[in-house]
């Protein structure tokens, strides 16, 4: 792993992270098959930086996000938070201490809140779990958080139930819950993909403002490259569990180097009828990374593949200049 991908003083630094899921096998079969949901992923994020994670469905975005929060245990690799490896800390006090500093925002604003709790309970939960402040103090924090995300006056929202809010309002509540304990790192898993255009912009802007205000590092997971363009400083593209490209967002989008990224970006429809985009077709379709071969994951579909790609291991993520990393032998 080239150490340059991961700045040493970064807030969160991921090194060679992998997660394999055992595939449910037949009752009498002795062979164990594994889905290599995430493999060999490395990157780092500074405080205040938003890193985008994009790719098609099933490429391992959510798995990466959950690994970072230790919602699932990694099969391999390291996660350094503030220099401390949190990949293998046992559940208990230390893990709880880590979780005081991280938060997650979920995709589905309807399912990510307990329908039997009031907004007050929902937003105060992290505070209560970590025993921060007394009840009066928590009420104040909840009121402030609600006001901060634009649900005013907070008193009229505090004791409502989630089903009494619209999708956009709920996602704001989810954000209020996430910022209440003043975390330093947030994983946002497609937080706007279920919101309508006119409401989405407000939520995106709010996230960016909060990032500034709290100097938050954020992993912004999305399948929408256009949204990623507005949200992230740097953008990583994943394909079947592997990170294939990472670089400054504008650079990756306007000047993609990896053949997969090129195909992906060329397929995004453009909201401009005069723009004639030139589609770069790739053959075949995406599969699941079950016991994948060791050579490049993209090889079977790659338009520029050579024999070399097949005979060697998956290409490493290499700097092609200005922090634009690509994992491909033929760039």
């Amino acid at each position: 792993m080239p150490d340059t991908v991961t700045a040493t003083d970064a807030l969160i630094k991921v090194d060679n992270l992998s997660k394999y899921y055992p595939l449910a096998s037949g009752l009498f079969s002795r062979v164990r098959h594994y889905i290599h949901a995430v493999e060999g992923v490395s990157f780092a994020a500074d405080a205040g930086e938003v890193i985008g994670l994009a790719g098609e469905s099933g490429c391992g975005k959510t798995t990466t996000g959950k690994l970072l929060l230790r919602l699932i245990a990694p099969t391999n690799g390291y996660i350094y938070f503030n220099g401390i490896d949190v990949a293998r800390i046992p559940s208990g006090g230390k893990l709880k201490a880590y979780r005081r500093q991280v938060q997650m925002i979920f995709q589905d604003p309807y399912e990510s809140m307990n329908p039997r709790k009031t907004l007050y309970d929902i937003i105060a939960e992290p505070l209560a779990v970590h025993k921060i402040g007394n009840i009066v103090g928590r009420e104040q924090v909840v009121a402030d958080s609600l006001a901060r995300v634009g649900l005013v006056p907070p008193e009229t929202f505090m004791f409502r139930y989630p089903h009494e809010l619209s999708g956009g309002q709920r996602q704001r509540v989810a954000i209020a819950r996430a910022i209440g304990i003043k975390p330093r790192f947030i994983v946002a898993d497609e937080p706007t993909s279920m919101l309508d255009v006119s409401i989405r912009t407000g939520v995106m802007k709010l996230l960016l403002e909060l990032r500034q205000e709290y100097n938050l590092a954020m992993l912004y997971i999305t399948h929408d490259l256009a949204v990623a363009r507005y949200m992230c400083e740097r953008l990583a593209i994943m394909y079947l569990g592997r990170m294939v490209e990472l670089g400054p967002t504008e650079e990756v989008l306007q000047n993609p180097l990896h053949p997969y990224t090129k195909a992906l970006i060329s397929a995004v429809p453009v909201p401009d009828p005069t723009f004639k985009r030139e589609a770069i077709p790739i053959k075949g379709s995406i599969s699941r990374p079950v016991d994948p071969p060791s050579y490049c994951r993209f090889y079977p579909r790659c338009p520029v593949a050579t024999d070399y790609c097949r005979e060697n291991k998956h290409p490493p993520l290499e700097d092609k200049g200005d922090g634009h990393y690509v994992a491909c032998y033929n760039v």
Partner: peptide, 8 residues
């Protein structure tokens, strides 16, 4: 999952 992230 959200509760777990919150340290519950």
């Amino acid at each position: 999952e959200a509760a777990r992230v919150s340290g519950g």
